[in-house]
Design a protein around this nucleic acid. Structure first.
Length: 427
DNA sequence: TCTGGGGTCCTAGGACCC
DNA sequence: TCTGGGGTCCTAGGACCC
């Protein structure tokens, strides 16, 4: 009997949102490009050229407007339908290369390479990289190692070292210590803004230092998550591959407004819109919600007087039906609304989720908590909106003038998900 | 003037019980 | 005058992720 050593790779799309924009506009290649968050608030993706200009991640757009204009940086509002669709193409390409894969985020996946006997994994990584580029246009980097945390480190090195040609294999590598020494402690997966300075205070400055740290001290100061990180750096796998992720435990839909909102009517419209989106997600994963929370808040950065309130509402019957949820959410909004504030953001959280099938029907009527006719209507609604774009069919409560709608002044077309926004080819 | 959104897991501490 | 000890469950908040 032989135990096969665990080998995992992390495939990460380079500057993903920027790369998506470049696929549909090749003139952006080689230029400085950034993508903005919802409401054109902060920077969420940067090309290497933009990074070289000193444009940081999550920096408010208005603070670097000058820098952007002076350097002719190309700016895009977030186009999540496009990025989501491109992500699916990348993931389905990756799935051809291993039977066991975990989609970790919109632009990252772990691929299990355990048991790939006699395969040159570095060469295999290059093949994956080439195929993804050819089939989707998206450049990726790949790190291969004995644990997820080390694969992340390999990926980081692959991104910054041109010699690597996009792939770094740390399995039985004699360069492992050298690689760990080149990674700052705050770049280690699991070490965030709070922990890094506390580690540095103790002289722990690199991934290599962290690997050598004393276990008991780490456990005491950084808990189980910290200890796991150290063990993973030592090559002991603590984090497994989640090939079929469990359904989400909560579903949130929230947005900051394009301009301050003061009237209850406008707030209710916005909340209605968010409830509809949240309910779609809920039905999409086949769950019912037991609790609905509405929250409102003023701008935490501004000089306006502050108000923040949230109200959790226990639903009389677990449900996934938009009209039911709307009714509760609008009542909740009225209860927490206070006149005289300039509201900046509102949101809806669905929690206490149950799998639809598992709810005992006999607790309610024969048909279960959501009557059959209502369920059919919701299905039809979701199909139309998925095909034609969110909000094509909407409830009256969602409003039509939408003064609260977020800013998105520089969005590219939804090339792959809207018939009316296909790429135009000029011959 | 203008500062995103959506998640997960862990821990400490309170409430409650025997 | 003195004020146990342990277990479980729940929740809020912290830290982290992309």
């Amino acid at each position: 009997m032989s135990t096969m050593a665990y080998v995992v790779s992390l495939v990460d799309c380079n500057n993903f949102y920027v790369s998506c924009e470049r696929v549909f506009d090749p003139k952006l290649e080689g230029r400085s490009v950034v993508v903005l968050s919802n409401n054109d608030g902060v920077i969420i993706s940067r090309s290497n050229e933009a990074k070289a200009l000193g444009i940081g991640m999550a920096v408010p757009f208005f603070k670097i407007r000058r820098l952007i204009e002076e350097n002719d940086v190309q700016v895009f509002s977030a186009n999540f339908p496009l990025y989501g669709d491109m992500s699916q193409r990348v993931m389905s390409t990756l799935s051809q290369f291993t039977p066991d894969m975990e989609i970790y985020s919109i632009d990252e996946a772990f691929l299990d390479f355990s048991g790939f006997k006699g395969v040159d994994l570095t060469a295999y990584g290059r093949k994956i990289r080439g195929t993804v580029k050819q089939w989707t246009g998206i450049p990726v980097s790949i790190g291969i190692a004995g644990t997820k945390t080390l694969a992340k480190i390999g990926n980081e090195i692959a991104k910054r070292s041109p010699k690597a040609e996009g792939v770094v294999n740390l399995v039985k590598s004699e360069h492992l210590d050298q690689a760990l020494a080149r990674v700052e402690v705050e770049e280690v997966w699991g070490i965030g803004r709070r922990s890094a300075p506390r580690l540095r205070d103790k002289g722990i400055e690199t991934a290599l230092d962290l690997r050598e740290a004393e276990e008991a001290w780490i456990k005491k100061k950084f808990g189980l998550p910290g200890l796991r990180t150290v063990l993973e750096l030592r090559g002991t796998p603590c984090l497994t591959l989640e090939s079929s992720p469990p359904p989400k435990q909560g579903i949130t839909t929230s947005r900051s407004f394009g301009a301050p909102v003061e009237s209850l009517d406008d707030l209710k419209e916005a909340v209605a819109d968010y409830v509809s989106r949240a309910a779609e997600k809920l039905r999409g994963q086949g769950s019912l919600a037991r609790i609905l929370t509405v929250f409102l808040m003023t701008n935490p950065f501004g000089k306006d007087s502050q108000y923040h309130n949230a109200i959790p509402i226990e639903l009389p019957i677990p449900t996934d039906s938009t009209p039911e949820l709307l009714h509760q959410a609008l009542a909740g909004t009225e209860r927490i609304f206070r006149k005289g504030y300039r509201y900046h953001k509102a949101g809806v959280i669905l929690s206490g989720l149950l799998p639809r099938g598992q709810v005992q029907a006999d607790l309610w009527e024969k048909e279960g908590p959501v009557p059959e006719r209502r369920r059919k209507l919701m299905q039809a609604l979701d199909r139309v909106n998925a095909r034609m774009g969110a909000g094509t069919v909407a409830f009256a409560a969602e409003g039509i003038h939408k003064v609260w709608r977020m800013k998105s002044e520089r969005r590219s077309k939804r090339y792959t998900t809207r018939w009316d926004e296909l790429v135009e080819v000029t011959v």
